[in-house]
């Protein structure tokens, strides 16, 4: 399987993520911000809040989460609206909104460049920005997209699932799955057992067999651990930088 033939156009193996870069706290006026890049795909997220909301929109039970998706150029279309809703529902699963009744949390997503797996990149960026803003959360998110290449590509035998696809791979795919998982935390429990990653969001496009979906889910699980490890590393670095004067 590891022969040259199983490599993708950009030289990656089918099960390989692109290089990730995460910058935290780079916006001055936002309460928290992060830029998350996966090679060509890059998203900048700013988080504002918890803050006062206009009385019309506030919820007496919990904080209202609003997501604004700014495309790279032009105005919002239906695709952006859909991404907004998916992202909002994903974040609502991890943000401890009941701690701030009547308040609002704004998440502004600015797409810098789209080279495939955009929604995953945005979810990862938003999670990093929320952590940077100090918004209480139940856990961290990691999101991965998988493209199911068309079978007549000649890449047979289970090698047709492409992890973290580029735009070209995504456009040529038979189907794509975008999964967001709540990652497994570090735990100091006595028995050391923590449940595995929980699926928070799953969006699919195109048609695929159930077995293929389950296979994709498995691979996303594995990849989410890599993303989680990277996110923790970047968080560690950012926190150390903040603490320098005290220590």
């Amino acid at each position: 399987m590891s022969s040259q033939g199983s490599l993708r156009k950009d030289g990656r193996t089918f099960n390989q993520l692109r290089g990730m870069v995460c910058d935290r706290g780079l916006l001055h006026r936002a309460d928290g911000s992060a830029k998350w890049s996966q090679d060509g795909t890059s998203v900048l997220v700013g988080v504002y809040g918890p803050k006062n909301m206009p009385p019309k929109r506030e919820d007496p039970e919990k904080a209202v989460l609003e997501v604004l998706w700014k495309p790279k150029s032009g105005i919002q279309g239906p695709e952006e609206r859909e991404a907004e809703i998916i992202l909002r529902r994903t974040l609502e699963a991890v943000v401890l909104a009941p701690l701030f009744p009547r308040a609002g949390i704004s998440v502004v997503v600015q797409v810098i460049h789209d080279d495939g797996s955009l929604l995953s990149c945005a979810i990862n960026a938003a999670c990093a920005a929320l952590v940077d803003a100090g918004i209480p959360m139940t856990g961290l998110l990691a999101s991965v997209t998988i493209a199911l290449a068309k079978r007549d590509d000649g890449a047979g035998g289970g090698a047709h699932l492409q992890l973290d696809p580029t735009r070209e791979e995504q456009d040529g795919a038979q189907a794509t799955v975008c999964l967001a998982l709540e990652t497994t935390p570090k735990a100091a429990t006595s028995n050391g057992s923590v449940e595995g990653e929980a699926v928070v969001t799953s969006t699919t496009r195109g048609a695929m067999a159930i077995e293929e979906y389950l296979e994709a889910l498995d691979r996303c699980r594995m990849a989410s651990r890599t993303i989680n490890a990277f996110a923790r590393l970047s968080l560690d670095k950012a926190q150390r930088r903040l603490e320098l004067p005290g220590t």
Partner: peptide, 20 residues
Amino acid sequence: ASSYVGQIVAPGDIVLDLTQ
């Protein structure tokens, strides 16, 4: 004390087992 004292922790980490 929890083994995570003094370390950098992230949301979701379980730092202490209250039964212990």
